[in-house]
């Protein structure tokens, strides 16, 4: 039982937090700008490398240097939106999807040019696990990730339900035409979307980098589970995406638990495939997601 909690449940929740942070942005962008942002994983990678540089310069703990990475990622997405996505906004959204593939490529090659393609780590050496009551042994990072996602959930709920910008964002996501007729400033809402999406992606990137190591494909490798999470939660429903991320993370980790026999239920090297498979099944049977998101 303790083994289940220590090696499957807590890591699953931590992985889920990383997915959730990315999926919130994907879901918001899909809801408001109406396209699947395939460069979102690479925004995460940018955030991780920005933070890494700040750690190198200042010697601070990565989570304290995080604001630098956040600013870096946000500036990058705002610039990309202005230069590459905005000129295509009046066209069928599929062109923006193709453009976002190109942006993913541009981000990744820039990262490789500036930082190289070798693996980097935030903190050297083995981290001691946190031991609670002699039974629960979990890594500090996983606890931090779970704490961050709880904080983000509360802040997000407050933002979406209590602030003017948050309410406007929900309005545009539910019905863009009506929102425009009602006089909402769409460009301002788009900007807010990128700032929130970029910030959360940067946090996710740093957490993912802390969990394994930092390399140029860090975020790209996570993009499909994050899409799965966004679809599971219902497109355009940020809180749904958060929930979806937790579910996908848990399913991925729990899929290799020896449920039936002494062997793992699914070979751990196919762990990520379970997330893709869930996504495909969802797309077929319940594309509107759990929380009744929009369908485009």
């Amino acid at each position: 039982m303790m083994e289940f909690i220590n090696f499957y449940l807590i890591p699953g929740l931590a992985l889920g937090s990383i997915y959730a942070l990315g999926a919130i942005g994907i879901s918001m962008i899909f809801g408001i700008l109406r396209f699947a942002h395939f460069a979102h994983g690479d925004v995460m990678t940018l955030g991780a490398y920005g933070t890494l540089t700040a750690v190198w310069v200042s010697g601070l703990h990565p989570l304290l240097a995080l604001p630098v990475g956040i600013v870096f990622a946000v500036l990058a997405v705002l610039a990309v939106d202005k230069v590459f996505y905005k000129p295509l906004r009046e066209l069928p959204t599929i062109y923006t999807v193709i453009a976002s593939f190109g942006v993913a490529l541009i981000f990744r090659s820039l990262i490789q040019l500036v930082w190289g393609s070798q693996n980097e780590v935030f903190i050297r050496g083995v981290q001691k696990p946190v031991v609670l009551f002699d039974l629960i042994r979990v890594s500090l990072l996983h606890l931090e990730a779970i704490a961050i996602i709880i904080g983000v959930a509360i802040a997000l709920h407050y933002f979406l339900s209590r602030t003017q910008t948050g309410r406007s964002m929900r309005a545009v996501s539910d019905n863009a035409e009506l929102a425009r007729v009602a006089g909402l400033d769409t460009e301002k809402i788009v900007r807010a979307t990128w700032i929130i999406g970029g910030s959360l992606a940067a946090i996710a990137g740093v957490l993912a980098g802390l969990d394994t190591n930092i390399q140029p494909n860090l975020g790209w490798n996570l993009i499909l589970p994050m899409f799965a999470a966004a679809i599971l939660g219902g497109i355009g429903k940020p809180m749904g995406a958060l929930l979806g991320g937790m579910v996908i993370g848990l399913v991925e980790e729990l899929s290799s638990y020896p449920w039936l026999t002494d062997e793992p239920l699914i070979n751990p090297s196919y762990k990520t495939a379970t997330a893709f498979l869930m996504m495909v099944i969802l797309l077929i049977f319940r594309p509107q997601g759990l929380l009744k998101g929009r369908l485009f």
Partner: peptide, 19 residues
């Protein structure tokens, strides 16, 4: 599936094949 969703599904399947 419509455009964006087909893109996701087809990448997902390609990744599973690669695995």
């Amino acid at each position: 599936l419509k455009s964006d969703y087909l893109a996701m599904a087809s990448i997902g399947i390609a990744e599973i094949l690669r695995m």
